[in-house]
């Protein structure tokens, strides 16, 4: 029984790490820009494809992952320059920019789908081959799990250092706390925003790469992950990094570990597996005190 639970662990950890990384990027982006960027799914998708194609052409998985991150970063920055910043400079409301991000997401996803359809890339499996490292119960802990956990650790440590110790990180916190004051303090708000966008895109791209190593991908992979990433970020109130990380783990484990537990306890059919994270997010939302929420989540 414990062995079986342990067997669920590697996959849960992998999913958790993926969601957590992208969600932390989303939260960071939200803190600085006040935008819950819907197009983050697309940065993930590009990460998936770059990593899959590079590993298929024999590049090593770690370099591919970094390049996937770089691609995500570039796209996140371009979308900001081409659409979001322009909108804000024209006096668009935050809600309008959010809706524009929905539009941007569709534009990128389906233009890419057209390309993928023509190039016959609608369904793709990466060149990553996973090798068992240790066995937990009956299931192996593979080099992919190890890679994901190391990447997540590096991300968490790196971001913590960045945000608490560096000038850029402090500026991000300053902007998050009071944008006008940050501006009149002489903090180059737009430049910090661009740096933030690059980081968000990078994290999304990296988590996309890990996803591509885990399973086959298609142009909607990022969109499928988007809901989980948003759920994780909602658990973290879009403001708290530790809570967002926790959110990633709640959502990531719910699907595997949670399904297994419910199956064991109540005999729930495994066909309902995709539903479990939804229940988790609904439970979290219901549990929250409405009025506390009003204060914490602005727009």
């Amino acid at each position: 029984m414990i062995e079986e639970a342990l067997g669920q662990l590697p996959t849960s950890l992998l999913a958790s790490a993926l969601y957590a990384m992208a969600a932390v990027g989303l939260t960071m982006n939200y803190s600085v820009t006040r935008l819950a960027d819907f197009a983050i799914g697309e940065y993930i998708t590009f990460g998936c494809y770059v990593a899959a194609l590079l590993t298929l052409s024999q590049l090593d998985p770690v370099t591919s992952m970094v390049l996937a991150g770089a691609t995500g970063a570039l796209i996140a920055l371009s979308v900001d320059e081409l659409a979001y910043k322009r909108l804000e400079r024209r006096g668009a409301t935050l809600l309008q920019v959010f809706i524009a991000s929905v539009g941007a997401s569709f534009t990128i996803r389906y233009l890419f789908s057209i390309y993928a359809d023509i190039e016959d890339l609608l369904f793709l499996t990466s060149g990553f081959s996973s090798q068992p490292v240790v066995f937990l119960g009956t299931r192996p802990l593979t080099n992919l799990h190890v890679l994901a956990l190391i990447t997540l650790t590096v991300t968490v440590v790196g971001l913590t250092y960045l945000i608490l110790r560096t000038k850029v990180g402090k500026a991000m916190r300053a902007i998050a706390s009071n944008r006008d004051l940050a501006m009149v303090s002489g903090i180059p708000v737009w430049r910090i925003r661009s740096i933030t966008r690059l980081l968000t895109g990078f994290l999304a791209g990296v988590s996309g790469a890990l996803w591509a190593y885990y399973t086959s991908i298609n142009p909607e992979s990022g969109w499928r992950m988007l809901l989980w990433v948003f759920s994780s970020a909602i658990i973290g109130n879009f403001t708290s990094f530790p809570l967002t990380l926790l959110g990633g783990f709640v959502i990531g484990s719910a699907e595997n570990l949670g399904m297994w537990a419910l199956n064991r306890a109540f005999g729930l059919e495994t066909a309902y597996k995709p539903l479990i994270p939804y229940i988790a997010i609904a439970a979290v939302l219901l549990y929250r005190n409405r009025y506390r929420f009003t204060r914490l989540v602005e727009l």
Binding site: R173, A174, S177, N178, A182
Partner: peptide, 8 residues
């Protein structure tokens, strides 16, 4: 108002 960053 709001002339310092309270969390810093």
């Amino acid at each position: 108002t709001g002339n310092v960053f309270p969390d810093m």
